[in-house]
Amino acid sequence: MPRLLYINEKFGHDATILLDSGDACWISVGKKGVLVRSHTHNFWGGLLGSVFGPKLYQERNIYQALNVAQALTAMFRPVPQIRCKDMMLAAFCTAAWQCSSPERVKAVLNDPELLAA
Rank of each mutant, 00 (worst) to 15 (best):
M1I: 03
M1C: 13
P2M: 10
P2I: 02
P2Y: 13
R3K: 13
R3L: 12
R3Y: 13
R3A: 14
L5R: 14
L5N: 08
Y6H: 12
Y6N: 02
Y6T: 02
I7R: 03
N8Q: 10
F11Y: 13
F11A: 14
F11Q: 12
D14H: 10
A15P: 00
A15C: 13
I17L: 05
L19Y: 11
D20T: 08
D20Y: 12
G22V: 09
D23C: 09
A24F: 05
C25A: 04
W26R: 06
I27R: 02
S28R: 09
S28T: 02
V29R: 02
V29F: 06
V29C: 07
K31E: 13
V34D: 01
V34G: 00
L35T: 15
V36A: 07
H39F: 12
H39K: 03
H41N: 14
N42M: 01
N42H: 14
W44A: 14
W44M: 14
G45W: 01
G46E: 00
L47P: 00
S50M: 13
V51S: 15
K55P: 00
L56K: 10
Y57E: 10
Q58H: 11
R60G: 09
R60A: 10
Y63H: 08
Y63G: 08
Q64C: 11
A65M: 13
N67W: 12
L72I: 12
T73K: 11
T73Q: 11
A74M: 09
A74V: 02
M75S: 13
F76P: 05
F76K: 05
F76C: 02
R77I: 01
R77P: 03
R77A: 08
V79K: 02
P80G: 05
P80R: 04
R83H: 10
C84P: 00
M87S: 13
M88D: 03
M88F: 06
M88R: 10
M88T: 07
L89Y: 00
A90G: 03
A90R: 15
F92Y: 15
C93M: 06
C93K: 06
C93D: 01
T94K: 02
A95K: 10
A96E: 03
A96G: 06
W97R: 15
C99F: 10
S100A: 14
P102Q: 07
E103D: 12
E103Q: 14
R104Y: 07
V105P: 08
V105M: 05
K106G: 08
A107G: 05
V108S: 01
L109E: 06
L109Y: 05
L109P: 01
N110E: 12
D111W: 00
E113Q: 13
L114M: 10
L115Q: 08
L115H: 12
A116N: 14
A116G: 07
